[in-house]
Design a protein around this nucleic acid. Structure first.
Lengths: 336, 336
DNA sequence: TTGTAAGCGTTATCAT
DNA sequence: ATGATAACGCTTACAA
């Protein structure tokens, strides 16, 4: 590890390390000539400042953490894409942590960040999280936190979501409009803001259009594909819904698979609509009607706000809810 | 930022900071009682060591960088999933960097890592990278580097791929076996190891089964969806292939879209096979025959090897090529 | 078994 | 305009 550091540069140039440091940081009280000498040598030797030393001294890491439940998920990978684009622009580094929907992992990961490893956190909550004290704690340490998608509205910070309630309402109304009378909901955990809102939107639409609510048509899906697949098969066999509103993409995929296995024809016997960022929605058999969230933009926005909080002293994160619009894209899976 | 540090713990307990430090690191020459006292207080105050101080002192960051071309891509998100699973197990942190297929970004990102920010690098090359000196340079600094998927075989380190040549050969032979006579290849940049091997496997199969090679049936796809879409449309209209072997998933998707637009029926008029980790391959219309790579396992393996190099002094990364097998999953898009 | 002190590479304050 | 020096929080010889 033949480290080239500030001291080495100083020795070679026969000047002091503090002069070198200032020159590199383009300080005003260093002469143009010295600056040039220093910068020339630095780039010749391919000098890179030691980030640990600098972070220790400045108590700033130029790094943020992104905590998400999973990454093999079109929504989250698009969101990361958005986050990363801003981070790269602003010279920040991005640490990725996956909770795999585990509350305990989420707590442990958050605790890891207390020591100053990151300057801020972007988080989308695990579906098993019902207690938020780990988040309050980390906020208490002065670490800015911004939520996206799976948010906690009670914490005093910015959260960024889509119009989940309205979209769920519209999705359900869309199914009704296409002739569905018995609409099931593949629900994501009610612990989650999105689970809650999407369920409520669904219920509101049923109520408004005077369709009965059947609790057994609301399936509390799990984090395991196989379980969901079985639950959906039972639903299809025993309840024979004519419409399904899936809260997340992978439930819709399971519903497609279950329908295929049971020889239920979509959209003739069963219409399906789902929240989804699947690139191939239009190529499915049948093509899937989706509510598509602007995941990339949400990532960008979340990152932008976090960085602003990090860089502008006067910009404090206060309880604010930013809502993006989702788009309902009608395809064959809900056609009459 | 009311930081609780080692000094504070020492003050409260009226012992020296080195005793605290040793106690926390479970050193052998600290009494059981002191250890317990220290650990109790540490967890009471929710002490987290400052990683910058520790990294600076130990010249180890417990962090790795993962450099990939893009993340909104099933292969790469699965690979990250695998990498992260090992990292979490080993207590490492994972920085994600995207090159967006840009050589210049790749160079800039690699340079960023010279200063000691990370202990090692996992990389899958950008498609525009043809010069590898930035990688040799970073290796020269003593930073271990492991390649996965898009590798450079000339560098002295481990690279992990799938059996691209054989899979491409088998894919092409599969098309021929299904009756195709005019097989096009949607090629990914020949700069890339995978581009090269997949092309060669394709050519080998044609040669072996005595089909003529038509250069104009080999489409050099770009990084832009629209361009690829147009290129494929022209191919379909002017060359009328009866088979397509796509080097990566998104080319196959474009081929599906182009076929749809041109009313070309898959698999009747055109059969398609593609490298792909699409979860919904079996739900497409028609379901897509894929060569599926064990992306998660590749990520795990790459991470495992890197961590071993970081933790075992005697384990040095030498030029070694680890090959996983891909699986050809036959579906409707290539049926007779 | 515990404590003292040096040092990791920077930055920032204060002299010069 | 430049330099000496302390400090960031931790680890680790070495001393006690």
């Amino acid at each position: 590890m033949e480290s080239v550091n500030i001291k080495k540069l100083a020795n070679i140039l026969n000047i002091s390390i503090s002069t070198v440091s200032k020159a590199l940081r383009d300080s005003h009280d260093i002469s143009k000539e010295t600056k040039e000498k220093v910068i020339a040598l630095a780039s010749e030797l391919n000098y890179q400042p030691n980030p640990h030393a600098s972070s220790l001294r400045k108590a700033k890491s130029k790094t943020i953490a992104v905590i998400i439940p999973e990454i093999a998920n079109n929504y989250f990978s698009l969101a990361i894409n958005g986050i990363e684009s801003i981070a790269q622009e602003k010279g920040y580094h991005v640490l990725i942590y996956l909770t795999h929907e585990s509350y305990l992992k989420e707590v442990a990961l958050i605790r890891l960040l207390h020591g100053g490893r990151v300057d801020g956190i972007l988080i989308s909550l695990s579906s098993t999280t019902t207690d938020y004290s780990h988040l309050e704690e980390v906020q208490g340490k002065g670490l800015p936190l911004v939520f996206f998608d799976r948010v906690c509205e009670n914490l005093n910070t910015v959260s960024i979501t889509t119009d989940d309630y309205e979209s769920a309402y519209n999705a359900t109304k869309h199914l009704i409009g296409q002739g569905c009378k018995k609409i099931a909901h593949l629900m994501i955990s009610k612990n989650l803001s999105i689970g809650n809102k999407r369920l409520k939107g669904y219920l509101k639409a049923l109520e408004e259009l005077e369709l009965p609510v059947d609790e057994t048509m609301i399936i509390n899906c799990t984090n395991e594909e196989e379980t969901n697949f079985e639950l959906i098969k039972i639903l299809l066999q025993e309840k024979r819904p004519d419409g399904i509103f899936a809260a997340v993409e992978r439930y819709a995929i399971s519903a497609y698979e279950a329908s295929k296995q049971l020889n239920i024809s979509i959209p003739k016997d069963l219409k399906i609509i789902s929240f989804s960022n699947l690139q191939t929605a239009s190529l499915l058999n049948p093509s899937l009607t989706t509510i598509t969230q602007p995941a990339f933009d949400i990532g960008r926005q979340a990152a932008t706000i976090l960085f602003r909080a990090l860089e502008e002293k006067r910009y404090l994160l206060k309880n604010e809810h930013i809502v993006f619009k989702s788009e309902l894209i009608e395809r064959e899976s809900t056609s009459k």
